[in-house]
Protein backbone atom coordinates (compact mmCIF):
# COMPACT_ATOMS: atom_id res chain seq x y z
CA UNK A 1 0.00 0.00 0.00
CA UNK A 2 1.06 3.58 -0.59
CA UNK A 3 2.57 5.59 2.23
CA UNK A 4 2.04 9.30 2.89
CA UNK A 5 5.42 10.81 3.72
CA UNK A 6 4.15 14.21 4.73
CA UNK A 7 2.76 17.49 3.54
CA UNK A 8 4.27 20.75 2.40
CA UNK A 9 2.56 24.10 2.20
CA UNK A 10 3.66 27.23 0.41
CA UNK A 11 2.25 30.43 -0.96
CA UNK A 12 1.94 30.24 -4.76
CA UNK A 13 2.25 33.90 -5.76
CA UNK A 14 2.73 34.38 -9.55
CA UNK A 15 5.59 36.86 -8.94
CA UNK A 16 7.54 33.92 -7.46
CA UNK A 17 7.40 32.19 -10.84
CA UNK A 18 8.87 35.28 -12.46
CA UNK A 19 11.56 35.58 -9.76
CA UNK A 20 12.57 31.94 -10.38
CA UNK A 21 12.57 32.56 -14.13
CA UNK A 22 14.88 35.55 -13.67
CA UNK A 23 17.10 33.88 -11.03
CA UNK A 24 16.39 36.44 -8.29
CA UNK A 25 16.71 33.99 -5.35
CA UNK A 26 19.57 35.97 -3.72
CA UNK A 27 18.09 39.40 -4.41
CA UNK A 28 17.54 41.21 -1.04
CA UNK A 29 13.77 41.39 -1.58
CA UNK A 30 13.46 37.69 -2.37
CA UNK A 31 16.13 36.07 -0.18
CA UNK A 32 14.08 35.89 3.07
CA UNK A 33 11.40 34.04 1.10
CA UNK A 34 13.65 31.62 -0.80
CA UNK A 35 15.61 30.88 2.40
CA UNK A 36 12.57 28.87 3.49
CA UNK A 37 13.17 26.15 0.88
CA UNK A 38 16.62 24.46 1.30
CA UNK A 39 15.35 22.26 4.15
CA UNK A 40 12.41 21.24 1.99
CA UNK A 41 14.79 20.37 -0.85
CA UNK A 42 16.92 18.23 1.48
CA UNK A 43 13.84 16.40 2.78
CA UNK A 44 12.57 15.70 -0.75
CA UNK A 45 16.04 14.50 -1.80
CA UNK A 46 16.14 12.13 1.17
CA UNK A 47 12.63 10.71 0.77
CA UNK A 48 12.12 10.89 -3.01
CA UNK A 49 8.31 10.72 -3.25
CA UNK A 50 6.90 8.81 -6.24
CA UNK A 51 3.70 10.87 -6.39
CA UNK A 52 2.73 14.41 -5.52
CA UNK A 53 -0.88 15.35 -4.78
CA UNK A 54 -0.96 19.09 -5.45
CA UNK A 55 -3.91 20.80 -3.76
CA UNK A 56 -4.35 24.31 -5.11
CA UNK A 57 -7.06 26.72 -6.16
CA UNK A 58 -7.48 27.62 -9.80
CA UNK A 59 -7.53 31.39 -10.38
CA UNK A 60 -9.29 31.52 -13.73
CA UNK A 61 -7.33 29.32 -16.10
CA UNK A 62 -8.65 25.76 -15.73
CA UNK A 63 -12.15 26.84 -14.76
CA UNK A 64 -14.46 29.76 -15.42
CA UNK A 65 -17.74 30.80 -13.82
CA UNK A 66 -19.72 28.93 -16.50
CA UNK A 67 -18.94 25.69 -14.60
CA UNK A 68 -17.32 26.06 -11.22
CA UNK A 69 -16.56 22.80 -9.43
CA UNK A 70 -16.21 22.98 -5.66
CA UNK A 71 -13.69 20.12 -5.69
CA UNK A 72 -12.03 18.98 -8.95
CA UNK A 73 -9.45 16.24 -9.43
CA UNK A 74 -7.27 15.91 -12.50
CA UNK A 75 -7.17 12.47 -14.11
CA UNK A 76 -4.91 13.18 -17.06
CA UNK A 77 -1.63 11.76 -18.36
CA UNK A 78 -0.07 15.22 -18.27
CA UNK A 79 -0.81 18.78 -17.23
CA UNK A 80 0.18 21.96 -19.04
CA UNK A 81 0.28 25.53 -17.86
CA UNK A 82 -0.43 28.66 -19.91
CA UNK A 83 0.68 32.27 -19.71
CA UNK A 84 -2.50 33.32 -17.83
CA UNK A 85 -2.63 36.66 -19.56
CA UNK A 86 0.49 38.15 -18.06
CA UNK A 87 3.20 36.26 -19.89
CA UNK A 88 4.15 33.56 -17.35
CA UNK A 89 6.63 31.14 -18.96
CA UNK A 90 4.96 28.14 -20.61
CA UNK A 91 6.65 24.97 -19.36
CA UNK A 92 6.89 21.42 -20.67
CA UNK A 93 4.03 19.25 -19.36
CA UNK A 94 3.98 17.86 -15.83
CA UNK A 95 3.58 14.07 -15.86
CA UNK A 96 0.27 12.83 -14.42
CA UNK A 97 -0.75 9.63 -12.65
CA UNK A 98 -4.25 8.82 -13.95
CA UNK A 99 -4.41 5.41 -12.23
CA UNK A 100 -3.85 7.09 -8.86
CA UNK A 101 -6.28 9.88 -9.79
CA UNK A 102 -9.07 7.40 -10.53
CA UNK A 103 -8.31 5.47 -7.36
CA UNK A 104 -8.69 8.69 -5.36
CA UNK A 105 -11.89 9.63 -7.21
CA UNK A 106 -13.42 6.16 -6.64
CA UNK A 107 -12.53 6.20 -2.96
CA UNK A 108 -13.69 9.75 -2.31
CA UNK A 109 -17.03 9.37 -4.04
CA UNK A 110 -17.51 6.14 -2.06
CA UNK A 111 -16.96 8.32 1.02
CA UNK A 112 -19.61 10.73 -0.26
CA UNK A 113 -17.36 13.51 -1.56
CA UNK A 114 -18.84 14.37 -4.95
CA UNK A 115 -15.89 15.05 -7.21
CA UNK A 116 -15.58 16.69 -10.62
CA UNK A 117 -13.11 14.55 -12.60
CA UNK A 118 -11.03 16.25 -15.29
CA UNK A 119 -9.35 14.43 -18.17
CA UNK A 120 -8.01 17.74 -19.39
CA UNK A 121 -6.97 20.46 -16.99
CA UNK A 122 -4.81 23.49 -17.64
CA UNK A 123 -2.91 24.17 -14.42
CA UNK A 124 -2.17 27.72 -13.31
CA UNK A 125 0.43 29.31 -11.02
CA UNK A 126 -1.32 27.82 -8.00
CA UNK A 127 -0.11 24.39 -9.16
CA UNK A 128 3.07 25.35 -11.01
CA UNK A 129 4.85 27.74 -8.62
CA UNK A 130 4.95 25.26 -5.71
CA UNK A 131 6.35 22.58 -8.05
CA UNK A 132 9.08 25.00 -9.14
CA UNK A 133 9.83 25.90 -5.52
CA UNK A 134 10.10 22.31 -4.30
CA UNK A 135 11.62 20.66 -7.40
CA UNK A 136 13.91 23.30 -8.93
CA UNK A 137 13.73 23.23 -12.71
CA UNK A 138 10.32 21.51 -12.62
CA UNK A 139 9.10 19.65 -14.49
CA UNK A 140 12.63 18.93 -15.72
CA UNK A 141 13.92 17.69 -12.37
CA UNK A 142 15.18 14.08 -12.18
CA UNK A 143 13.22 13.57 -8.93
CA UNK A 144 9.96 15.04 -10.29
CA UNK A 145 7.11 12.83 -9.02
CA UNK A 146 4.04 12.14 -11.10
CA UNK A 147 1.26 14.50 -10.14
CA UNK A 148 -2.41 14.51 -9.20
CA UNK A 149 -3.86 18.05 -9.15
CA UNK A 150 -6.78 18.81 -6.86
CA UNK A 151 -8.41 22.23 -7.15
CA UNK A 152 -10.90 23.70 -4.69
CA UNK A 153 -13.08 26.70 -5.44
CA UNK A 154 -12.09 29.90 -3.68
CA UNK A 155 -13.04 32.17 -6.58
CA UNK A 156 -16.79 32.34 -6.02
CA UNK A 157 -18.78 32.06 -2.80
CA UNK A 158 -20.09 29.79 -1.43
CA UNK A 159 -16.66 28.25 -0.84
CA UNK A 160 -16.21 25.08 1.21
CA UNK A 161 -16.16 25.38 5.00
CA UNK A 162 -12.92 24.82 6.90
CA UNK A 163 -14.43 21.68 8.38
CA UNK A 164 -15.31 20.36 4.93
CA UNK A 165 -11.76 21.06 3.76
CA UNK A 166 -10.25 19.17 6.70
CA UNK A 167 -12.70 16.28 6.21
CA UNK A 168 -11.86 16.22 2.50
CA UNK A 169 -8.23 15.78 3.49
CA UNK A 170 -9.09 12.92 5.84
CA UNK A 171 -10.91 11.10 3.05
CA UNK A 172 -8.03 11.83 0.68
CA UNK A 173 -5.58 10.36 3.18
CA UNK A 174 -7.70 7.21 3.43
CA UNK A 175 -7.80 6.95 -0.36
CA UNK A 176 -4.04 7.31 -0.70
CA UNK A 177 -3.25 4.78 2.03
CA UNK A 178 -5.42 2.21 0.25
CA UNK A 179 -3.70 2.62 -3.14
CA UNK A 180 -2.38 -0.87 -3.92
CA UNK A 181 1.17 0.04 -4.84
CA UNK A 182 4.33 0.33 -2.77
CA UNK A 183 4.72 4.04 -3.34
CA UNK A 184 5.58 7.17 -1.43
CA UNK A 185 3.29 10.19 -1.65
CA UNK A 186 3.75 13.81 -0.66
CA UNK A 187 0.81 16.22 -0.44
CA UNK A 188 1.03 19.93 -1.18
CA UNK A 189 -1.34 22.55 0.20
CA UNK A 190 -0.72 25.78 -1.67
CA UNK A 191 -1.86 29.38 -1.38
CA UNK A 192 -2.23 31.89 1.42
CA UNK A 193 -1.49 33.13 3.87
CA UNK A 194 -3.33 36.42 4.56
CA UNK A 195 -3.77 38.75 1.61
CA UNK A 196 -6.38 40.79 -0.21
CA UNK A 197 -6.01 41.97 -3.78
CA UNK A 198 -9.35 43.69 -4.31
CA UNK A 199 -11.34 46.57 -2.96
CA UNK A 200 -10.61 49.50 -0.70
CA UNK A 201 -9.06 47.02 1.76
CA UNK A 202 -6.50 45.81 -0.83
CA UNK A 203 -3.14 45.22 0.80
CA UNK A 204 -4.63 43.86 4.01
CA UNK A 205 -2.31 41.43 5.82
CA UNK A 206 -2.92 39.90 9.29
CA UNK A 207 0.21 38.54 10.95
CA UNK A 208 -1.51 37.67 14.21
CA UNK A 209 -4.15 35.55 12.51
CA UNK A 210 -1.58 33.84 10.28
CA UNK A 211 0.48 32.90 13.33
CA UNK A 212 -2.64 31.49 14.97
CA UNK A 213 -3.33 29.36 11.87
CA UNK A 214 0.30 28.23 11.57
CA UNK A 215 0.38 27.16 15.19
CA UNK A 216 -2.90 25.25 15.14
CA UNK A 217 -2.56 23.57 11.79
CA UNK A 218 0.39 21.58 13.10
CA UNK A 219 -1.07 20.13 16.29
CA UNK A 220 -4.72 21.12 16.52
CA UNK A 221 -6.33 21.59 13.10
CA UNK A 222 -9.79 20.79 14.51
CA UNK A 223 -9.63 24.11 16.38
CA UNK A 224 -9.49 25.91 13.04
CA UNK A 225 -12.77 24.37 11.89
CA UNK A 226 -14.51 26.76 14.30
CA UNK A 227 -13.60 29.64 11.98
CA UNK A 228 -16.58 30.55 9.78
CA UNK A 229 -16.04 31.37 6.11
CA UNK A 230 -16.97 35.02 6.57
CA UNK A 231 -14.58 35.20 9.52
CA UNK A 232 -11.89 33.75 7.27
CA UNK A 233 -12.55 36.47 4.67
CA UNK A 234 -12.49 39.11 7.39
CA UNK A 235 -9.33 37.91 9.14
CA UNK A 236 -7.27 36.39 6.32
CA UNK A 237 -8.41 38.77 3.56
CA UNK A 238 -10.59 38.01 0.55
CA UNK A 239 -7.89 35.84 -1.09
CA UNK A 240 -6.57 34.49 2.23
CA UNK A 241 -9.40 31.98 1.90
CA UNK A 242 -6.77 29.90 0.08
CA UNK A 243 -5.93 28.65 3.57
CA UNK A 244 -8.58 26.01 2.81
CA UNK A 245 -5.88 24.21 0.76
CA UNK A 246 -3.71 23.96 3.85
CA UNK A 247 -6.64 22.42 5.74
CA UNK A 248 -7.20 19.85 2.98
CA UNK A 249 -3.51 18.90 3.03
CA UNK A 250 -3.45 18.69 6.82
CA UNK A 251 -6.45 16.38 6.98
CA UNK A 252 -4.69 13.81 4.82
CA UNK A 253 -1.68 13.54 7.14
CA UNK A 254 -3.38 11.96 10.15
CA UNK A 255 -3.13 13.03 13.79
CA UNK A 256 0.59 12.69 14.48
CA UNK A 257 2.95 14.91 12.52
CA UNK A 258 6.42 16.34 13.10
CA UNK A 259 7.22 19.86 11.98
CA UNK A 260 10.46 19.79 9.98
CA UNK A 261 10.66 23.44 8.95
CA UNK A 262 8.62 26.61 8.64
CA UNK A 263 9.09 30.06 7.20
CA UNK A 264 6.91 33.19 7.32
CA UNK A 265 7.66 36.45 5.58
CA UNK A 266 5.80 39.73 4.89
CA UNK A 267 5.43 40.79 2.15
CA UNK A 268 6.01 38.90 -1.06
CA UNK A 269 3.99 40.74 -3.67
CA UNK A 270 0.73 41.51 -1.78
CA UNK A 271 0.92 38.44 0.42
CA UNK A 272 2.12 37.14 3.77
CA UNK A 273 4.10 34.14 2.54
CA UNK A 274 4.13 30.96 4.59
CA UNK A 275 5.90 27.64 4.17
CA UNK A 276 5.55 24.57 6.35
CA UNK A 277 6.83 21.00 6.07
CA UNK A 278 5.10 18.38 8.18
CA UNK A 279 6.27 14.78 8.28
CA UNK A 280 3.86 11.94 9.03
CA UNK A 281 4.60 9.46 11.78
CA UNK A 282 6.22 6.43 10.10
Amino acid sequence: MAQILGGITTSHIPAVGNAIDKGLQDDPYWKPFFDGYPKVHAWIKEHKPDYVVNIYNDHGLGFFLDRMPTFAIGAAHEYRNEDEGWGLPELPPFPGAPELSWHIIESMVEDEFDITSCQELAVDHGFVVPMQLFWPGAPNNPDMPRAVPISANTVQHPIPTLKRALDFGKALGKALRSFPEEAKVVILGTGGLSHQLDGARAGFINKEFDQYCLKNIVSNPEELTKISRMELVEKAGAQGTEFLMWMMMRGALGDEVTEITRNYHIPISNTAAGTLLLECAA
Binding site: V155, G199, A202, V233, A238
Partner: peptide, 16 residues
Protein backbone atom coordinates in the same frame (compact mmCIF):
# COMPACT_ATOMS: atom_id res chain seq x y z
CA UNK B 1 -25.29 35.00 5.32
CA UNK B 2 -22.67 37.64 4.58
CA UNK B 3 -21.31 39.96 7.21
CA UNK B 4 -20.27 43.49 6.36
CA UNK B 5 -16.50 43.63 5.91
CA UNK B 6 -15.50 47.22 5.10
CA UNK B 7 -13.63 47.60 1.82
CA UNK B 8 -14.42 44.02 0.83
CA UNK B 9 -16.89 42.65 -1.71
CA UNK B 10 -17.90 39.04 -1.17
CA UNK B 11 -17.98 37.60 -4.70
CA UNK B 12 -21.08 35.44 -4.44
CA UNK B 13 -23.73 34.28 -6.88
CA UNK B 14 -25.30 37.72 -7.06
CA UNK B 15 -22.00 39.40 -7.97
CA UNK B 16 -21.06 36.53 -10.30
Amino acid sequence: YHIDIPGTTVFDGRMA
